[in-house]
Simulated scan of single mutants.
Amino acid sequence: MTQTAAPPANPATQPPPHAATHAPAWRAPDRHLHLLDPHAAPLTAAQARHALHGAPDGTHLLGAIGFTPQDPAAFHLAHSTPPTPTAAPSTSAAPTGILHAASRPAPDAFEANVARAAATIARGELHKVVLGRTLDLHLHAAPDPSAVTARLAQGAPDAFVFSVPLGDGAQLVGASPERLLSKRGAQLRLRPLAGTRARHADPAEDLRRAHDLLHSAKDRHEHALMIAAIRETLAPLCRELTVPDAPRLVQTPGLWHLGTSIHATLRDPDLHVLDLVSAVHPTPAVCGVPAPAARDLIGTLEGPRGFFAGAVGWCDARGDGEWAVTIRCARLCGPHAHLFAGAGIVAGSDPARERAETAAKFGTMLRALGVSPLDLEGAL
């Protein structure tokens, strides 16, 4: 997408933090961020590096970057406030009418992609690749991004909920459960996720699915590949690196995941968080192992991902910040919603099961938009 970036805003002309009344563009358990000018054109990645120079204390840079360095980026000046309760009409959206829905690739084509990837893995050319799908919805009415993110925040209070203007009236919204990394001085924290099961309304069945995931050899292998790659990337940058021996269960309203909480101490505490994001992103949680071969296959089967499976987060003038993986998300533009979901493919992956996993992951955004999966059975 072609972007026209405005020069960095003059902080002297910006309203003080208490003057903003618009909804947070970033919600996390420990802070909210409000854009200084929600209508400003996004800054490019090159402009972002200089945008905080001379800005008032408390000014942050909120942004989103794409899956690859060639994909777009969008940054905005923002200010931080303590978390406040989320106000929304209800925890669920009113039903939304759908004029048209289509997934790309279509369900059968996605399963064929999974089979192709599995064959590539069987030949030893790959260990893991994460394949994605998009779901294009043309709705009767344009959803309100503020209402959508409020519902996401109510439904997943521990998630990283974001709403980043991309320019041309488009908005990147989502509720990511996956911390890419958080930097405070020399201290670094990550919580990558790999391995998924859909939740179930029946408590006994829900517990069975969680147990099945925790003890699944296939999912633990997928998770171990990711952790090994992240450890290899971080080791040269850190003087201490603590990685648990086994993953733990992480629950969201709709899904169970395997997650590992990683703690590290950087050799250089002045290393900027954006440099760290560039070093670790994309992780095997959204790309694969080895990364170059996985990126090539993703490009062949999917084409450019843009902001999907990228990273979204913030940094301050000290170079500290927190970033999440851009998943459980959508691009909203007028009555059009463009959703993304992916699944990790390893040896032994079943095409139908991986397709069903992506369908379950679409559920986070579908619920926030008021769209029933029952109305999309052919597309999911």
Rank of each mutant, 00 (worst) to 15 (best):
F162N: 05
S163G: 06
V164G: 03
V164Y: 06
V164L: 05
P165V: 01
L166A: 05
L166C: 04
L166N: 04
G167F: 02
G167H: 02
G167C: 06
D168S: 13
D168H: 14
G169S: 09
A170Y: 03
A170W: 00
A170E: 12
Q171V: 13
Q171M: 14
Q171H: 15
V173M: 07
V173F: 01
V173A: 05
G174T: 10
G174P: 09
G174D: 10
G174C: 11
G174E: 06
A175P: 07
A175T: 05
A175I: 02
A175D: 07
A175R: 01
S176F: 03
S176C: 04
P177K: 07
P177G: 07
P177C: 11
P177R: 04
P177F: 07
P177Q: 08
E178I: 02
E178T: 03
E178V: 04
E178A: 05
E178C: 05
E178Y: 02
R179S: 02
L180H: 03
L180W: 01
L180D: 03
L181Q: 03
S182T: 13
S182Q: 13
S182F: 00
K183E: 06
K183L: 10
K183R: 15
K183V: 05
R184M: 07
R184C: 10
A186W: 04
L188R: 10
L188P: 12
R189K: 13
R189W: 11
R189S: 15
R191I: 06
P192C: 13
P192V: 12
P192E: 12
P192L: 11
P192H: 12
L193D: 10
L193E: 10
A194F: 09
A194I: 10
A194Q: 07
A194W: 09
A194S: 15
G195F: 11
T196E: 09
T196K: 06
T196W: 05
T196S: 15
T196L: 12
A198M: 06
A198W: 02
A201W: 01
A201L: 09
A201E: 13
D202F: 01
D202A: 08
D202P: 01
A204N: 01
A204K: 01
A204T: 15
A204Q: 14
A204S: 12
E205Y: 00
D206S: 08
D206F: 02
L207H: 13
L207T: 14
R208W: 04
R209P: 07
A210W: 02
A210H: 04
H211N: 13
D212I: 00
D212K: 08
D212T: 15
D212V: 09
D212Q: 14
L213G: 08
L213Y: 04
L214V: 05
L214I: 02
S216E: 10
S216I: 06
A217W: 01
K218G: 09
K218Y: 08
